[in-house]
């Protein structure tokens, strides 16, 4: 097995896991959403890397070009980017309201307030 040809994927996996770590380890609700963003963006990078063809061109039909990268992952990821920003927007709206209701966006303090009553 050629390690070099997988190296690209493994770096992307490291990126995904860095984002995932922020989501589950951080207590600040905004930071969690940032982590989610990084996690998702890195998944997009994985998809797009998988569609790349060496010496290929962008999939816009041009005279004299015969090798193109795979257009289907591009289409899927365009949709997924939109889904990602939609989720972020809804999440941030919730965070804004949580701050109005609790006066904090730290998970531990919210939990304390909920347990107190």
């Amino acid at each position: 097995m050629d390690i070099a040809s997988y190296f690209n994927y493994w770096i992307v996996i490291v990126l995904m896991m860095l984002g995932f770590y922020i989501v589950i380890a951080r207590g600040n609700l905004v930071k969690k959403l940032i982590g989610l963003n990084i996690f998702q963006t890195s998944v997009f990078i994985l998809y797009i890397s998988a569609g790349k063809v060496s010496d290929g061109a962008a999939p816009i039909l041009t005279e004299g070009v015969s090798v193109y990268s795979n257009p289907l992952p591009h289409v899927l990821i365009l949709t997924a980017i939109v889904v990602g920003i939609a989720t972020t927007a809804v999440g941030l709206a919730l965070v804004a309201r949580i701050h109005e209701a609790y006066g904090t966006v730290e998970e531990s303090q919210i939990l304390e307030q909920d347990n107190a009553c």
Binding site: I77, I81, L92
Partner: peptide, 30 residues
Amino acid sequence: MDAVDVAFTEAAVGAGVSPLLLLMTVALVG
């Protein structure tokens, strides 16, 4: 990676809309 459409969208979303919304939220929550 030859994904020009995706790059265009990611630049608009990842470097534009999403930071804007995040900044507005942070202006609200500190």
